[in-house]
Simulated scan of single mutants.
Amino acid sequence: MTMYDYEVQTIKGEMTILKQFENKVLLIVNTASNCGFTPQYKELQQLYEEFKNRGFFVLGFPCNQFNEQEPGGNSEIERFCEMNYGISFPMFSKIDVKGKNAHPLFIHLATNARGVLGSKAIKWNFTKFLVDSKGQVVKRYSPSTKPNQIKQDIEKQLIGVL
């Protein structure tokens, strides 16, 4: 299975396949509205706006597995993101990113870009995964890595895209 075969549900509840992002550079992030890292939404939106015309997308996947910091439903999450951060990048339905109910996409990401000491575990909200235009997971970034610190890596991946 490739990155593009995974089926996900949009925040509006529609099923879609990631194939629509084939040949694009992606930053996939597990998000939460009530986390100390929530202000990263602002920089994620800035990155998206800066690079979207070059074939770059941020994909946000809300998750409530870390201290229940994303308790709301999809419409509440969507409203929060739009009102507080002007989010226009694709957001998806709330999912699990770890454990027995982890979404297969996040199992794939965690397996292909391991964390500290080779760990597959996603340990907190706002863990970020950079995916190249061929669907290969390039790198994992910790929750404390600010989105703007990833800018250079994104630019490298965008060379030759489009």
Rank of each mutant, 00 (worst) to 15 (best):
K128W: 14
V97P: 02
A110P: 01
Q157N: 08
P39Y: 12
K42E: 14
E49H: 06
Q152V: 04
Y4Q: 05
G13R: 01
L26D: 09
T38M: 12
K120E: 15
T111A: 10
I11W: 07
N148W: 02
S88K: 14
G86Q: 10
A102I: 05
A110V: 02
N67L: 15
A121D: 15
T31W: 11
V131K: 07
V58H: 07
K128S: 10
G55N: 09
K100V: 11
V25D: 06
N23F: 07
E155K: 05
I87A: 09
H108N: 13
A32Y: 04
S75T: 08
Q152Y: 06
S75M: 02
F126Y: 05
L47D: 03
L105F: 11
K94V: 05
F106S: 00
K128A: 11
Y141P: 12
G118R: 13
Y41V: 02
N23T: 05
T145F: 02
L26E: 08
L26N: 09
V137I: 14
G55K: 09
M15W: 12
C35G: 03
C81W: 02
S33N: 10
G99S: 01
F129W: 07
A32G: 07
E155C: 00
G60Q: 10
E155I: 03
M83H: 10
G160V: 13
F106Y: 15
Y48L: 00
F92N: 01
S142Q: 15
T10Y: 00
